[in-house]
Amino acid sequence: MIRSRRAVAGLVLLATLLALVFAGPLVAPWSWDDTDFAALRSGPTAEHWLGTTESGRDVFAVTLRGARTSLLIGLAVAVISTGIAAVVGTAAGYAGGRLDRTLMWGVDLLLALPPFLIVVLLAPHLDGGAPVLIPLLAAFMWMITARMVRAMTASLRDREYVLAARFLGVGAPRVIVRHVLPQLASLLAVDASLSVGVAIVAESGLSYLGLGVRPPDVSLGTLIADGHGAVAAYPLPFGFAAGLLVLIVLAVNLLGDGLRDGLDPASGGAR
Rank of each mutant, 00 (worst) to 15 (best):
Ala39Arg: 14
Phe37His: 15
Gly93His: 06
Arg68Gly: 14
Asp36Ile: 14
Asp36Gly: 12
Leu113Trp: 11
Asp58Val: 05
Ala85Trp: 00
Ala86Tyr: 01
Arg101Gly: 15
Leu117Met: 14
Ile80Ser: 05
Pro115Cys: 08
Leu110Tyr: 07
Gly74Val: 02
Val120Met: 08
Glu47Trp: 11
Gly93Ile: 04
Leu72Gln: 04
Pro114Val: 06
Leu121Tyr: 13
Val62Phe: 02
Ala78Val: 11
Pro115His: 14
Phe116Ile: 15
Ala61His: 06
Trp105Ala: 15
Trp49Asn: 02
Ser55Asp: 15
Gly43Ala: 10
Val87Lys: 00
Leu121Val: 13
Thr52Trp: 11
Thr53Ser: 15
Ser42Asp: 10
Leu122Arg: 08
Ala95Ile: 13
Thr45Ile: 05
Pro44Thr: 02
Arg57Met: 04
Phe37Val: 15
Ala86Asn: 03
Val62Leu: 01
Glu54Ile: 11
Thr52Asn: 09
Phe116Cys: 02
Val62Ala: 02
Leu113Asp: 01
Ala85Glu: 04
Ala95Met: 11
Ala76Tyr: 11
Val62Asn: 01
Thr52Asp: 13
Ala39Pro: 08
Gly51Trp: 08
Gly83Trp: 03
Ala67Lys: 00
Gly74Trp: 07
Ser55Phe: 13
Ala76Val: 04
Leu103Met: 10
Ala112Phe: 10
Asp36Leu: 14
Thr102Tyr: 13
Ala91Ile: 08
Ala91Lys: 02
Phe116His: 08
Glu47Leu: 13
Gly106Ala: 10
Gly97Pro: 06
Leu122Ile: 13
Ser70Phe: 02
Met104Ser: 08
